[in-house]
Design a protein around this nucleic acid. Sequence first.
RNA 1: GGGCCCGUAGCUCAGCAUGGAUAGAGCGCUGGCCUGCGAAGCCGGAGGUCGCGGGUUCAAAUCCCGCCGGGCCCGCCA
Length: 615
Amino acid sequence: MISYLSEINDIKRASERALKSIGLQVNFTVSETTMPSFGDITTNAAFLISKAKKVSPSEAITLFLTNFAPASQELIKVAPHPNGFINFWLNTEFFNKFINNIISQKGFGHVDIMPQKIAIEHTSVNPNKALHVGHARNVIIGDTFYRLLKRLGHHVIVLNYIDDTGIQVADLLIGFKEMGFNVDGDDQKFDHYCGDVVYVKANKVIENDLRLKKIRSNVLKELEGGGEIYTFANHIVSRVVSEQLKSSWNLGARYDLLNWESHFLHAGYWNKVFDILKSKGAVQYISEGKNAGCWTLKGKKVLVRSDGTTVYTAKDLIYAAWKLGIVNDVFGYSVFADQWDGTPLMTTVLNKNGVKLYDSVDVSYIVIDQRQEPIQQMIKDVIEDIDPNKKYKIISYGLVALSKNTAEKINANIGNERFVHMSGRSGIFFNLDDLYLMVKKTATEIINKRNASLENKERVAEGIAVSAIRYSLLRIDLEKQIIFDIDDALKLEGDTGPYLQYSLARAIKIVEKFGSIKIPCDVGVLNSEEERELLLNLTKFDYKLIKSYDAVSLSTIASYAHELAAQFNVFYEGRRVIDEKNEQIRNARGCAVLAFTYIMNDLLQILGIPILKDL
RNA sequence: GGGCCCGUAGCUCAGCAUGGAUAGAGCGCUGGCCUGCGAAGCCGGAGGUCGCGGGUUCAAAUCCCGCCGGGCCCGCCA
C-alpha cells in the first residue's frame, strides 16, 4: 500500500544508495517536517555530507542529488533548502493513488508487518473488590494495545490473571465466615459490596485481632490446598470476577482467557518451573547470612523460603513460563462467559478433558503499574535467559491518584496534600462504575439540551462515556502519573473523546447526503492549505500506527486522531462540499471526506471509541 | 544508602524514539462566527528563561553529566 510510510522508506533507501556512492556511511534521518512550508518529508543527509566531506551545504546538496534516485520518483518532488535541508514534496499523483486505494478497499487495509504470536495480560485485579479508576488505566492501556496489535496483523490472545489465593481474598472470606456479613450481599453490585463494605471492615478488624489473624493464615494454606474453604472461595471469587468483567466490558474491553492462581498451584506447576530454574542455573541456594536456607534470584530476591514455601514472585514466574511455553500446558478449557463482541471468554479447568486451547506464544506483554516494574524486570531477565527466543515485554504506567477535590467528594480527608494515592484497604478509591455512570449522566444532560429528539439516547450517552473515559486516559503518556479529577473527567469539549466522535459524525453526514462519488478521484484540484494538510495527514495512518507500536506509545495514536479530527473540522468550517458548484471540486472534496471517514473509523476502533452516527 | 519515572503557558497535556528551520493543543481568560454539510464546532487576542547549571554539536525541549523539586520501588508480605 502506498502511503507516507512507503515514501519515507523509499527516500531512506535511495538516500542510503546516494551516500554509499559518495563513499559515506552515516546515520542520517528521514522524517516529518516541522512546518508545511518545508515540504512533507525532510532529510538531514546534506548536513552530514557537508561535514564529512568538508564542503559547503550547497555543494553537499548537489553531490547528494546527482546520486539520488528513489524508486517512486514520479511521486516525489525534491526541494533543497539553501540552509542545508533537503525537503520533499509528495505530488498529486501520490495523493490520488492513496485516496483511490482507500476508497476502493473501503479503508486503509493491510499494514505491512511480520505477524507474531502474542499474549497480552492486563487487568489482573485482586478478586475482592470493584475496579477503580487506577485499574481502569490498566484495562484501557491493555485493551488498546491489544487492538493495535490486532490491527497490525498479529495473532493475539488476551489474558486476565485472577489471584484467588491471596491475602485479600482471605480477608474477604473471613468477613463472610467469621464476621457475619451476608453472602448474598445487599442491593449494590456484588464487587462493590465486597470491596467497599466487607473487605474494608474485615481487614481493619483482622489487623487488630490475633485470633482472626491465625484463622487467616489457615485460610491461606487451605486455599492453596483446595479443600472446603477453596470451594467457598471459588464461589465468592467467581461472582466478584463476573462483576469486574462487566465494568471492563462497559469500557469496550474483552479477554480470551481467565487464568487462576489456584489452578497453577493445584496443577503442581511450581516444581516443574523450579526444576527448570535449577537446571539453567537461574536460582541460587544461599547457605549463610540472613537468607540462609533460601533459594534466590540473582542471589538477592528470595524465591523459596527456608521452610520450603514460595514467595509471591514464584507465582509470577510460573505464569510467565506458562505463557511462553517454557512449561507445558496441562489445563483443560471451558467457557466462562459470553462477551459483548460475540466471542467466548474461556477459563482454564483442572480436569483436562476440554479441548486444547492455549498455544504458547513468542511474545508476551504484561500491563502493570510502575511499582511492580522492578520485580517484573527480574522475571523478564530470568525468562529470556532461559529461552532467548522468547520475549517478555513489560508495559508499565504511572499511578493514578485522586485530586484533593475528588478525594473530598468520596469523603476522604487528605489535609493539605494536593492529591492522595488510592488504597483498597483504607477505602480511598474512585470506583470505575461510578465514574462511568457520572459521565453517562452528564452526556445525557448535554444530549437533552442540544439534541433532544435524538433516538437511542441511552446508547449514545454510553458511547460518549466510553470515549471520554478511554481517551482521557490514553492521551497521557504511560510514564506519567495521573492525578484524576472528577470535574475534569466530566468535561466533554476540546481535546476529548467526544470531539473525535463528533468530527466523524459530521463527516458521515456529508457522505450520506453527498450522493454517488465518481471514481477514480482526482484530488489535484484541492490545493488550499487546509485541504492539502488533511490529505497529507490521512496518508500517515500506518506510519503513526507503527511508531505507536515500536515505542509502545498509545498517546501517539490519540494525538494523531485528535490532529486529524481538528484538521477535518477546519476543512469543514472553511470549505463547502455538498453544495459546491464546481463539479470537479465537489467530487474531490467528497473523496477526501469519504477517505477521512474510513481512516477515522479505523483509528477510533483501535482506541476503542464507539462510532456514533448521531450524538 | 541504592534504583526507576516525571518536571514544557495560570491549569491539564502533546512534541523527546531518529538533535534541525517560527515549541503545539485543550481548559481557563478575552473578542468574534449559526436564514449555509451538526456551534460537543471554527477564527482572532493575551499567556513560554521548555525546572536550574554545565557539557557534546554547525545546531539541544530532545543526547550526556551534576543539582533542585515531585512521585514510586528496594520484606523469608501478597
